[in-house]
Amino acid sequence: MDAIILQILNGLDKGSAYALIALGLTLIFGTLGVVNFAHGALFMIGAFCAVTLSKLFNLSFETLDPTKKDFLGNPLKVKTPYVQEWFGPDVGAWLIDWSVPLAILFSIPIMVAIGFVMERGLIKHFYKRPHADQILVTFGLAIVLQEIIKSNFGANPVPTPAPEVFRGSFDFGVLLGFDPNVIIYPYWRMVYFAFAAVIIGGVFAFLQFTTFGMVVRAGMADRATVGLLGINIDKRFTIMFGLAAAVAGLAGVMYAPINSPNYHMGMDFLVLSFVVVVVGGMGSLPGAVAAGFLLGILESFASMNEVKSVIPGIDQIIIYLVAIVILLARPRGLMGRKGVMED
């Protein structure tokens, strides 16, 4: 029992990341009809926004401290971050400690801007082209973005810690009446899950309860008619692209402490997220979210030793296996709509 709860919890944070990326992919696909292979790169750029902010806060200048001597008797060099100099030591230290959550604010405008530029500059020209061309050009873009990040931040993962208060683990088992230390769960992963839930809820509320969202949904259902009603649907879809980019970016920002960002994390997540989208059903937002969590949890169950001893290697391939079975048994995916991407 405790093992099952533990695996469900473990699956939640990865599932949240899958769900957020898949949500963005589905938004883009549902609105613009474009298959975006560069979405994983947006996730990665988000994570590197967190890295950049934490590096910016840690920019420091060196002073000589005459009170301390190194072993040669010279005054010791002391590094003081600029933020500590400007805002005082306490606020400065707090800023450095909280750089990842603060990167949320920093990343939103950046991600939206990147989304706008991508859509207006590149994707726009590919609406009328076949899906294969869309896949290929965004695949090329993904390579380019990934290499730009690599040349600026290096090939190694950059550790980006969470704020001090979230670094411990929470003993979840005690809450449910198990022995202590049986089900422990890092705080930051709880934060990540809650954050993902808020974002997903926010996106759905935005689409469901605002006029803007209503127009967008109408456009997803029938783009031509909405256009004929005198609504500039292209502009709204561009904004949705920016939103989808921001969702992927935020997912990346918050994921930085869980897994140190490296330049190919986007590609790793992209393949999985595509599988998630297909399992959930192309063009179905609830399907993408549900499939994200489902596959995340399935993956963590498959990595249990009990399961692995029965079917060796299952943890590596479970997601792909599920995707193959779903695609063959239920071609439309779990919640796919009729008529979307059927050929």
Binding site: V35, H131, L328, D343
Partner: peptide, 16 residues
């Protein structure tokens, strides 16, 4: 399957 589903299926098999 065809179209993008075919791409993803082959991708899934290769990754497996």
């Amino acid at each position: 399957r065809s179209g993008i589903y075919f791409s993803i299926l082959t991708l899934a098999f290769a990754e497996m």
